[in-house]
Each structure stands twice: as structure tokens, then as C-alpha cells.
Amino acid sequence: MSRGSRDKLQSKAMLSLKLPRLVTVQQLPKVFHEDSILYGYRSPQSSALSCILSLFQMTNETVNIWTHFIPTWYFLWKMLSMLCSNNSWHDPFMWPLFVFMLSCCIYPFASTCAHTFSVMSTQARHICFFFDYGALSLYSLGSAIAYSAYVFPDRWVNSLFHQWFVTYAVLNTILCTGMACYSRLGFPLLHYNQLLIDRFPEVSQPRISKVLRTSAFGYPYLFDTIPLFYRLFLCSGDDCAHNATLTWHLGHTILAFLTAFLFATHLPERLAPGRFDYVGHSHQLFHVCGILGTYMQLEVLIMDMNLRRVWLENNVASPSLSSAFGAWSLGLAFSLLLIGGFSWALYWKPQPEKEKRRM
């Protein structure tokens, strides 16, 4: 092949990799609409390659993607660094922390993939966010496992609530994954006509869908932080585990409530539709606050673990694989089953009555 031919082929390849064309909200099916976002949308029938190429152009999803993709690698580096130091993997006291750190790696990566590939089709959009919701529920479960090991005030340690805390957290994971998936799809197996795009709960009943989804994210957080709230605001005396971590715990709590506020209110774009489409809309701020909150949560858990280690090892049984990785794996298994069921429902079509009679 001559040099000129090779240059032409390279030029054609470069042209074929041009950045995807963006569209406005009026050019999209309603299921792809974002509240008060008017411009910067990608085509709802993008290829996987187009989705990846869109990471390198400014769309209304670009900041969402990168604010979770980069932290994924930081949390992964942090976890691997701790795993490789001083044989930490063989220390049962560290296992709840590693479960939490694994959750911190998975949920921003799942969010990255969801926001990247959600414009391949209507079905792909729902499935991508099913996995995103499942990952968030597992992150909440990882938090509960770590809180059970390191955060409970001294006077609550070994109480009945402490003994059943992780079990309830596993049940919350199952409940909240199902609730979040239902907020997008409803129960199509019972009402198959709702599979029509304009009948999705997210489109036909957006307020109810939003309440369900916010509850699915907020409820497990509130449950997980019961021992922390008690320690921060109600507990007094020597058996409250008051130490240098309380300021960090308070900062993380403030960020968590700010994250929920941004997710629920769609501010500031609701005040000026079209002005914050590319940079500064609520979902981007929600991502930033969420990641900062996760970073603070991880650092303060490490501090609490180190400051309270001697007392906890003397008063609490060492964590077991079943109480840490076993509980998290159970939550993962049930979440995948729910995601699989809701995903299958997107493609399920009932047989007409005539065909049933012929069979």
C-alpha cells in the first residue's frame, strides 16, 4: 500500500471518529429529559463508541462523568495501598473498612458508566441507572458495616440494636434497590401496557417517581447514621466515644444533607432554565458534594478505627467474614437479582390471547 493510500485511510478514520452531534430537549423523547436542562444532550440512539467519544466534548453529562470517574481511581488506589501495607488483609479488624472501601470504588464507577452509556437507547438508559441505584444501595450497606465496627458509641456496643444492625442494613439494601428501580419502571409484569415509553412512572408521574427515588437514597443513609447522630447530638458522658473525629463526622453529615437537597430541588437550574446546562447544574453539584462526603467519610472512619481500636478489640468480638464480606455479598446478590428482573421486564412482551389458545 502506498503512502498516499495510507494517509487517505487515516484521514477517513479520523473523520469517522468525529465528536457526536448534540441536540436540544425538544428533539428528545420525554424519557430522556432532565428537569430545566435545555441544551447539550447527546443523541438518544448513540453507539457505544459515540458515548465514549462524548467524554471529550462538553455536553450536559461531561462534568457528571468525570467527577465520578477520577475519584474511582483515587478510592481504588487508596484501597490497594492499605491492602498491601503491613499485611492488613490478614487483620480481621480491618475487614469492615475494606468492605466500605470496595463500595466506594464501585458506586462512582457504576455512576460513570450509567451517565456515559445511558443514551444508547431507552432500555439502555433504564438498565444503566438500575445498576447505578444498586451500587448506591451497596455503598450504604458498606457504610453500615463499617459504622457497626467503628462508629457505635461505647454504651450501644453489644446491644440488641448493634447485633442486628447489619442484618437490617442488608434488608434496607434489598428494599431500596427495588424501590429505586420501581421509580423508573413500575411493575410492567402486572401492567404490561405501561411498557410504552410515555407510561413509565418517571414520565407519567414524575413527582411520585422523584419521591420514591429520593426515599430510596435517603432512608438507608438515615438508618446507617442513627448511631452517629446519637453520638454527635444526644449522647453525654464518658461512654459516648467523643474524640477528635466528631468535627469530621459533622462535616460529612452536612455534605450528605447538601447532596440530598441538591438532588431533590434541582437548584440552581430550576431558577434559570438553560443557564446551567453545561456547568453548574444540580446533578453536577450533587456529584461533587457526594464524592467530597465519601472522601470525608472514609478519612474519618480510618481515624475512628485507629483511635478506638484498643477499646473495641477489648470489648467487641473480632469481625468475621460473614459479618463483613458475607453480608455485603448477600446484598450484592439480591440487588443483582432485582436489577436482572427489572431489566428483563423491559424486553418482556406478553403473548396475545390467540397465540396462547393455539399453544
Rank of each mutant, 00 (worst) to 15 (best):
T173F: 06
Q194A: 07
S215Y: 12
I145T: 08
A216F: 09
D154T: 13
S118G: 02
T116L: 01
V166W: 01
Q123D: 14
D198F: 13
T112G: 07
L195N: 07
P153R: 04
A149Y: 02
C105W: 12
P92G: 10
L196S: 09
L83H: 10
N86Q: 15
S121C: 10
Y182P: 00
T116P: 04
M94A: 09
Q194Y: 09
S143Q: 12
L102E: 07
D132W: 02
F130T: 02
V99K: 09
Y133A: 03
L185A: 06
V157G: 00
G186M: 01
Y182M: 06
F93I: 07
L222A: 12
T167M: 14
N87M: 11
A144N: 07
L171I: 14
S215G: 12
R125S: 08
R213I: 11
L171C: 10
R199D: 10
A124C: 13
I106R: 01
V170A: 14
G142D: 08
S111F: 03
Q194L: 06
T116A: 04
V157M: 13
Y150A: 05
T112K: 07
S118R: 05
V119N: 07
W156S: 01
C84T: 12
S148C: 14
H115K: 09
F200S: 07
L141G: 03
F152R: 00
C113K: 05
P96I: 04
Q205R: 15
A149E: 03
F130M: 13
P153G: 02
T173C: 15
V211C: 03
Y139L: 14
L102A: 15
G218L: 12
L141Y: 12
L83V: 07
L136Q: 15
L138F: 13
L141E: 07
L189Y: 15
